[in-house]
């Protein structure tokens, strides 16, 4: 009986030791990956930061209004600092995933494969959002200035409409790209956009019929009587 117990215990211990010996190189590999990843992330962060400083990324960000948004959101880092930290954490994340993958645990393998397949979509989604946001800020500002110079009282409203339209459009595109509720997103956007256009058409054509008539009359009569009330100074 005692022999049976001894064999059973030693056998299981041997099996455990065997597994530990097989698993130990994986742990070493994981640790090596993590240490290397940390070093690479740190070096990359430094290089990227100096590169962004050299190309005056902070100034460009300020010019595009990106720095303003960050400061309004309470972010005290400069855009160059923030972007280099963002890539630092991305490398850390990838390192962590690679490290876990090196352990060769079956449960994590599938998850990691999915994650890496999804990563390009994630980057594309983020890129669409960032570019969409920058375009929205730029065109919103252009609309505001053009509307003020055209003496439109509702210049700010018009500028906000343009900005939010582009932000919503880029958000829709990003979500569609990420494959999140694709059909719902497209349907929601189509209904919302179509609804807004219809509402505006009805508001202008029905609610503001007199206003529309007055506007068109003034526009065409104004063209006929061009020069009335105009400035005739030569600016140059």
């Amino acid at each position: 009986m005692g022999e049976v117990w001894r064999v059973a215990i030693i056998d299981s211990l041997n099996k455990f030791l065997g597994k530990v010996i097989t698993f130990f190189p994986n742990v070493l590999a994981m640790m090596t990956i993590l240490i290397l990843g940390l070093i690479i992330a740190w070096v990359f962060k430094k290089i990227l930061f100096y590169f962004l400083k050299t190309i005056q990324f902070d100034r460009v960000s300020k010019q595009w209004g990106f720095a303003d948004i960050l400061s309004k959101g309470g972010v005290t880092y400069s855009p160059a600092h923030l972007l280099s930290r963002f890539f630092y954490w991305i490398i850390i994340l990838i390192t962590l995933i690679l490290g876990i993958n090196a352990l060769e645990v079956a449960a994590t393998q599938n998850f990691i494969a999915h994650f890496f397949n999804y990563l390009p979509n994630l980057f594309a989604g983020i890129l669409i959002l960032v570019i969409g946001y920058l375009i929205a800020i730029f065109l919103g500002q252009a609309t505001l200035i053009a509307a003020v110079n055209a003496q439109m009282e509702s210049a700010k409203l018009l500028s906000r409409i343009v900005r939010w339209f582009i932000i919503i459009l880029s958000l829709t595109m990003a979500l569609y790209h990420l494959g999140i509720a694709e059909k719902v997103i497209v349907a929601t956007f189509s209904i919302t956009f179509g609804g807004i256009v219809l509402a505006l058409a009805l508001a202008f054509g029905w609610g503001g019929r007199e206003l529309a008539k007055d506007f068109l009359e003034r526009y065409y009569k104004g063209r006929e009587k061009k020069g009335e009330g105009e400035d005739h100074i030569s600016h140059i």
Binding site: G229, E230, I233
Partner: peptide
């Protein structure tokens, strides 16, 4: 030459 001063002031205020 004719100059519409009120309109110019209006544009300044809007700006």
């Amino acid at each position: 030459v004719s100059v519409n001063v009120e309109r110019m002031i209006g544009n300044f205020r809007l700006g």
